[in-house]
Computed example of a mutant assay.
Amino acid sequence: MMIAPLYMIAALAEIAGCFAVWAWLRSGHSIFWLIPGIGSLVLFAYLLTLSPADTAGRAYAAYGGIYIAASLGWMWSAEGQAPDRWDLIGLLLCLCGAAIILWAPRSG
């Protein structure tokens, strides 16, 4: 599986799982929201194990840039708040950092 779609699916799974907890604790939804939320978080953790990164820490760090992009997309689509220019500038910086972490040439 290509890395970008893998990380995007992982990000959606993580955001959905975290949102389920948010909906229960902050929005007064039923505790039963936790059932799909936990499943979604387990899926997220599994998907990160499929990363081609050589260490878990590097996989998580590279994933961070994609997570930020997905979070801003969630904010826009689910919460109705469009990202501002500072959000987008920060996102570009994070994506550049994630690309360096994942694809930098390494010796040894």
Rank of each mutant, 00 (worst) to 15 (best):
Y63A: 00
Y7H: 07
L92Y: 08
I15C: 02
A78W: 13
S77R: 13
G90T: 02
R106Q: 14
A56F: 10
M8L: 10
S27I: 07
P83Q: 05
L12R: 13
G65R: 00
A16R: 04
E79G: 08
P105L: 13
D84T: 08
A69D: 00
P5L: 06
R58Q: 04
W22Q: 09
S51C: 05
A16C: 05
W76V: 10
E79Q: 15
W74Y: 12
D84K: 08
P83C: 06
Y67C: 08
W24H: 13
Y46H: 12
W103G: 09
A98Y: 02
W74M: 07
R85M: 13
A78C: 12
L47P: 01
L88D: 04
L41D: 04
P52C: 08
G73H: 07
W33N: 08
D54P: 12
H29L: 10
S40L: 12
Y7R: 03
L50A: 15
S71M: 10
C96P: 01
E14T: 00
I68F: 09
W22L: 07
P5F: 06
V42S: 13
Y63D: 01
E14Y: 00
L12Y: 10
L50M: 15
A10I: 02
R26P: 01
T49R: 11
A56K: 08
I38H: 12
A10R: 01
A69L: 11
L93E: 06
A98W: 02
I66G: 01
C94P: 03
T55A: 04
D54C: 05
V21P: 00
L91H: 05
T55Q: 03
R106S: 10
A69T: 02
P5M: 05
L50S: 15
G37S: 13
A20Q: 03
W103C: 08
